[in-house]
């Protein structure tokens, strides 16, 4: 290691801060009860809901985020700076604040929600609200990852495609998107992981109703507050989330090595 030797001390402490809590979590686990805990109806319900909503949110982020990323990458550098800052906002905003903001927009008396309510559409406290909350917090991960790749790839290949007679849609589909493939996959993975772990915005905007809006993080929170599933189940579910996160990171890493990133 270069630099002053004593820097090793804070470095090790930093690592411990990340690793020790996870070790404590595993240590607390009663392994014999894990299968039953994970397979309990409440746990399965939360797990299923989490996977479905996170997948849906990821699709929303892809469909909206990829065009947004392209827009940012191809606009003037000043406008791009502003747009990038706006897109990053959910990343630095406390998710609770995001949830409140979503309520003020789509709630029954909200900016848009009031009109929706008039035609009989109510979004808050539905599974749809979970997906919206997750999309809100996960979108930046996808946009930032893909936008950088679009910008790096530049317009050179797109211009070549045009001289070969390719329409803009063909060029986008066969040149622009494949060129950012690796970054797109990385963005999707991060986006999914973030959606899976989303808690704050969901709790405020979607509530905590079993089978409808109680995703894994909410189930874990409820369990620790003494309701719903037991604490053992909560710990097992927490571990499951950790395992999913680690798998996601490992998958991304080996895959990045495959494509030489």
């Amino acid at each position: 290691m270069s630099g002053p030797r004593w820097l090793i001390a804070p470095a090790v402490l930093g690592l411990a801060l990340i690793v020790l809590p996870l070790i404590a979590l595993i240590a607390k686990l009663d392994w014999t009860s894990v299968p039953a805990a994970i397979l309990s109806p409440e746990a399965l319900s939360a797990l299923t809901l989490s996977l479905i909503t996170a997948a849906a949110a990821t699709v929303v982020c892809i469909v909206l985020g990829v065009p947004l990323a392209l827009l940012i990458a191809r606009t003037t550098s000043r406008a791009a700076g502003v747009l990038r800052a706006v897109v990053t906002l959910p990343l630095v905003l406390p998710p609770l604040v995001g949830g409140i903001a979503l309520l003020f927009l789509l709630g029954r008396t909200g900016l848009v929600g009031a009109s929706l309510d008039a035609v009989g559409v109510r979004i808050p406290f539905t599974t749809g609200a979970v997906v919206i909350a997750q999309s809100f917090v996960a979108m930046p991960f996808l946009v930032i990852a893909v936008e950088g790749a679009f910008r790096t790839a530049g317009v050179r290949y797109e211009q070549v495609a045009a001289t070969l007679g390719a329409s803009r849609w063909t060029t986008f589909r066969r040149v622009t998107l494949p060129l950012v493939g690796p970054s797109l996959v990385a963005g999707i993975v991060l986006c999914f992981a973030r959606a899976l772990g989303e808690f704050g915005a969901t709790a405020l905007f979607a509530g905590n109703q079993e089978g409808v809006t109680r995703t894994m993080p909410l189930a874990i929170y409820t369990a620790f507050n003494g309701g719903g599933i037991g604490q053992d189940t909560a710990i097992a579910l927490s571990l499951l989330l950790v395992v999913v996160a680690v798998l996601v990171l490992l998958a991304m890493r080996s895959w990045r090595e495959d494509v030489g990133l």
């Binding site: 050179r156 290949y157 211009q159 070549v160 495609a161 045009a162 001289t163 070969l164 007679g165 390719a166 329409s167 803009r168 060029t171 040149v175 494949p178 060129l179 493939g181």
Partner: peptide
């Protein structure tokens, strides 16, 4: 006429082959 409908080909100094 937009570039893609001009039927004008271009060969540059850089081959710019689609890498994928």
């Amino acid at each position: 006429v937009p570039p893609e409908h001009r039927r004008v080909g271009l060969l540059n100094q850089a081959p710019s082959l689609f890498p994928h």
